[in-house]
Structure formats: structure tokens, C-alpha cells
């Protein structure tokens, strides 16, 4: 049984400055993993590099033992909410159906089946009533739910999510965490860029500590230690109380 994600020697550079430096990463199936690290640590770049969205200087990523290009149907990607133009003339339902475009392939248009699947995914995130809403009328939390529904509809094995909690209210955050944990229980693998160190032990079972290099990766109980956080954040650990961090 291969790992859900296997990254070897992944290096991404901006001219001669490394953004990610020789990352090795093996994520077993069925874990909910946070990527944490300071600003500029390369968290988003890591996700994009694994998905082939940025040029890599070296290294490779395997999804269930095969290159990503051959496993697209197994992977769902939730980009940062701010990466798209929410004034785009389209509806909530339409955005969710975009998650199914990969399965449809070129030229073929979404039909009744896709509509039904998208409505079901919207139901899961509690947004079925807003299916026909123009996307510019959504709140930040609703936008994030739409993106989540778009990933759910793909029915993937591996989910990459870039800051799904950014700018959402507490209720939405709770709802999203519950969904992520349900996905994990269903055997899916989730990799989530996360900012709030405080909630890592509560939400996640695995964690990757990243700051250009891989500082530590593994079960939260083992690697989410004060020492590792100090290594990652260079001595200063922001927003975290000693109590929420496991002592070494």
C-alpha cells in the first residue's frame, strides 16, 4: 500500500533564492495534516508545487505511487479564497460544478447529474438555499464554503486546502472542521495550510512544520513540541500558550 502522498527532494527556487529546500514528505492515507510555519515559509508554494502549479527546481511528488498528472481524478484542490475574482458573473451552483469539470474532460458540458451532485455538496456545507446566488453577494465564510463544496463534489481521495479558515467566522470554522474530520474518517487524506497554532492539536492528527525546510512531520502528539515550534519560528512562538503544546 503506497502512501497517499510521497514527496522526495522537492526544491523550488525564485532565481537563486530557495523557497522550498529539499523537502521529503511521506503522508500515509487517512490523515488530516496541517502545514504550519511562519509567513514566507513556503506553505502555499509547497501545495502548488505538489500539484504542478509552480516550476520545481528538483524533486518529485507521487500521489498513491504515481505522478500527479496521472492521478488528477484522485485529487481535489481548494485554493486561497482571495485567489479568484468574486465579481465574476456566475452563480454559487456554477462554481461548485467547476469541481466536476476534470471528470467531464474537454468540451463536454455539465448536465443534470452534475447539477444534482453540486446541490448535494452544497447541502453538505449548508448552502443549498444559496445555489442560485450571484457569488459577489457571499460573505467570506460563505465563499469558503462554496470552495469546500467544489472540492467535495470531486469525491477525491486526497484534498489540498490552502487556508480554508481564513476570514471565516467561528461557526463556519466549526462546520468546516467537522467536515474535514468526517472526510478523514471516510479514509480520505487531507493536507491543510493552517495559521492558528492554538487549534492544531484539536483539529488535526498530523502536522508538518515548515520553514523553507521541513523541520518536522508526523503525528501531532509526537512532533508538535515546543522545541520543534521554536526551530520553525526562530525562537519566537506566536499566538501559542505553552499549555496547548506538548512538552518534549
Amino acid at each position: 500500500m503506497p502512501n497517499a502522498i510521497d514527496v522526495t527532494d522537492l526544491t523550488v527556487a525564485y532565481r537563486d533564492t530557495p523557497v522550498l529546500w529539499d523537502i521529503d514528505l511521506a503522508v500515509p492515507e487517512g490523515v488530516l495534516m496541517a502545514i504550519v510555519g511562519p509567513n514566507g515559509a513556503g506553505k502555499t508554494t509547497l501545495i502548488k508545487a505538489m500539484l504542478g502549479l509552480v516550476d520545481v527546481a528538483a524533486g518529485q511528488t507521487l500521489i498513491y505511487g504515481e505522478p500527479y498528472a496521472r492521478q488528477r481524478s484522485l485529487v481535489a484542490y481548494v485554493p486561497q479564497r482571495g485567489s479568484v475574482d468574486w465579481d465574476f458573473p456566475t452563480s454559487v451552483l456554477d462554481v461548485v460544478m467547476m469541481g466536476l469539470y476534470g471528470r467531464l474532460g474537454w468540451v463536454k458540458r455539465p448536465g443534470k447529474k452534475e447539477r444534482a451532485a453540486a446541490l448535494e455538496a452544497l447541502d453538505k456545507v449548508g448552502m443549498q438555499d444559496l445555489a442560485d446566488r450571484q457569488i459577489s453577494q457571499l460573505s467570506g465564510g460563505q465563499q469558503q464554503r462554496v470552495f469546500l463544496a467544489r472540492a467535495l463534489v470531486q469525491d477525491a481521495q486526497v484534498y489540498f486546502m490552502d487556508e480554508p479558515f481564513q476570514g471565516v467566522d467561528a461557526t463556519t470554522e466549526r462546520a468546516i472542521v467537522t467536515l474535514l474530520q468526517e472526510l478523514r474518517q471516510a479514509g480520505k487524506t487531507l493536507v491543510v495550510v493552517h495559521h492558528d497554532l492554538q487549534t492544531v492539536p484539536e483539529y488535526f492528527d498530523w502536522v508538518l512544520l515548515l520553514n523553507v525546510r521541513r523541520l518536522a512531520v508526523g503525528p501531532v502528539a509526537e512532533v508538535f513540541t515546543e522545541e520543534n515550534l521554536r526551530l520553525t519560528y526562530g525562537g519566537r512562538i506566536p499566538f501559542v500558550q505553552a499549555a496547548s503544546v506538548n512538552e518534549p
Binding site: P79, S83, F88, V95, Y101, V107
Partner: peptide, 22 residues
Amino acid sequence: AVFFKELKLSTFDAGLAAALGF
């Protein structure tokens, strides 16, 4: 008409379009 779906996706969210192989 032929590439409506592809144009829509890549205009709205080029990242997802690339991730899905479009």
C-alpha cells in the same frame, strides 16, 4: 461554444483549471 466551460473555469480560477489539467 465549444470551449465555454474551459474558458469560464480558466478565467475564474486559473489555478484550479491547471490542477484539473485544462
